[in-house]
Design a protein around this nucleic acid. Structure first.
Length: 481
RNA sequence: CCCGCCAUCGUCUAGAGGCCCAGGACGCCGCCCUUUCAAGGCGGAGACCACCGGUUCGAAUCCGGUUGGCGGGACCA
């Protein structure tokens, strides 16, 4: 039994990327379906771009999404270490082996020379690639010519006609361009992605290499490396690239949604985000659009991927998140809403409003503004806001006063009696219902859009409601002088 | 410039030769419900299936070309 082993291998170079979650989702689903393992590997071979707490953020955010790994740097495993910076001897050994076998060679060219060489090739409208100036030379021979440094890198010696086709799980038979003599070991002794990924995927027993579409063009390099090292190549699956609205590859510069934390900050539920990501380039056999991670596990199939790079449409995610919020129990809703509220307490008040609040919330981060009137005493609603609701100042004052005394007279303070009492007041004085209720709404909440007024007043409580109705009256009285 | 990947409503997609003068979802518009905003219900607009040419009795689906978009062409991943 050859157990499926898949991995996700992010680089700790800054805020975790949404693409990491996207690929982790499907890798995990595939691993779970097959009874295999999902591995997290940290590809920290770029010392220049390394960011200190990035790795921890990757852990935290993947855990937030419940995309938990079986093996990884934090929990170990049988084929560790799971951080590339801790596996340097492995890459160096592979590089030396390749040099011995004549599949790789040392190169001393300076970055400046390489840049100039590339510029010339472009100008001459030739394909760009290393010109093999260092091939077959000793360090001394090369040093005699200009543009050399004393620290060597190791390059692949790509043959005339390397194999360029492979079978991709998502795209089927796929062609890729002829590689040039790619650097595999840098001057600082760290491997480049190409060497690192092949060596680690092999030693870690990865059976299915999954990565973004941007890697299709370097797959022939990897095939060559597997061949030279005498290793069986894995299967490959290149996921479609998530895109910005302008169809370019999704980027933090152009799109806040490229940063995984953004979703947490905005108050998207992790299960909603997962569901949405599963809708990108993939679909359920029965066309369902709302489904769980377990549903993905049960229905996962590489053939259900579309190779087209989907644009990340936040509008649809908002809708989906709203659907998930509506389905939350009151307790669950309150628990998740807590971090987004403008203050502590008010639990009883919030509990009265959970149903209408759930129906009105797309992102939990919006909640703060929706319920701010619960977290303050006085409101200080400006007179023009009150008058704007259709009643002139004298009429508004009369209406608010009537509402005030009706609420004070009430035996209890429950939504239904409140509604009845206000409705009676409105009828007795034959006021326009819309104008009356809107004026009261603004006086008591400071806004024109709120949950149902009777629920809201009950939540605010008699004392504060009455005080606010009274405050509004005096504001109006002062303004009309 | 060189190489490669891709191509169905604004967006996400279903579709693997006749069931499609193309279905669903988001968004948009209208109506209903309604004291606001939502939610919900109902209805609507929206795709010459990028284009051209084949194959076939028959093509969104197969083949070729064109165009367009994107990706790669780093001692970055």
């Amino acid at each position: 039994m050859s157990s499926v082993r898949v991995r996700v291998a992010p680089s700790p170079t800054g805020d975790p990327h949404v693409g990491t979650a996207y690929m982790s989702l499907f890798c995990l689903a595939f691993a779970r379906q097959q009874g295999g393992q999902f591995i997290l590997r940290i590809e920290d071979t770029d010392q220049a771009r390394y960011v200190e707490n990035s790795e921890q953020q990757i852990f935290d955010l993947l855990h937030w999404l419940s995309l938990d790994w079986d093996e990884g740097p934090d929990r170990g495993g049988p084929v560790g270490p799971y951080r590339q910076s801790e596996r340097l001897p492995l890459y160096q050994a592979a590089a030396h082996e390749l040099i011995q076998a004549g599949h790789a060679y040392e190169c001393w060219c300076t970055p400046e020379r390489l840049t100039a060489m590339r510029a010339e090739q472009q100008k001459a409208k030739m394909p760009t690639g290393y010109d093999r100036l260092c091939l077959g030379k000793t360090r001394e021979q090369r040093a005699a010519e200009p543009g050399s440094s004393d620290r060597a890198v190791v390059r692949m010696l790509v043959p005339e006609s390397p194999p360029l086709t492979f079978t991709d799980l998502i795209r089927g038979d796929t062609n890729a361009p002829v590689p040039d003599d790619q650097v595999i070991l840098k001057a600082d002794g760290f491997p480049t992605y190409h060497l690192g990924v092949v060596v680690d995927d092999h030693h870690m027993g990865i059976t299915h290499v999954t990565r973004g579409e941007e890697w299709i063009s370097s797959t022939p390099k990897h095939l060559l490396l597997y061949d030279w090292l005498g290793w069986d190549p894995p299967r490959f699956a290149h996921f479609p690239l998530l895109r910005n609205t302008d169809r370019s590859k999704i980027s933090k510069r152009k799109n806040p949604a490229a940063r995984l934390v953004w979703f947490k900050e905005q108050g998207y539920l992790p299960e909603a985000l997962l569901n949405f990501l599963a809708l990108m380039g993939w679909s359920m056999p029965d066309g369902r659009e709302i489904f769980t991670f377990q549903d993905v596990v049960e229905n996962f199939a590489w053939e259900r991927f579309s190779p087209v790079g989907p644009i990340f449409d936040v509008d649809k995610l908002d809708w989906l998140n709203g659907q998930y919020i509506q389905r939350l129990t009151d307790d669950e809703f309150l628990r998740r809403a807590r971090p987004f509220l403008p203050g502590e307490g008010q639990d009883a008040a919030l509990r009265r409003l959970t149903l209408p609040l759930k129906e009105r919330t797309k992102r939990l981060a919006e909640l703060g503004e929706q319920v701010d009137f619960l977290f303050v005493g006085n409101l200080d609603v400006p007179a023009d806001q009150l008058v704007k609701q259709g009643l002139d100042a004298p009429a508004a004052i009369a209406a608010l006063e009537a509402a005030e005394s009706a609420l004070e007279r009430l035996a209890g303070f429950e939504p239904a009696p409140i509604e009845q009492a206000l409705s009676d007041v409105c009828a007795e004085r034959s006021m326009n219902r819309r104008k009356f209720f809107m004026t009261v709404r603004v006086a008591v909440t400071g806004k024109t859009a709120t949950p149902p007024l009777h629920d809201t007043i009950a939540a605010i409580g008699r004392e504060r409601s009455v005080a606010r109705l009274r405050d509004a009256q005096s504001t109006l009285a002062q303004s009309s002088h």
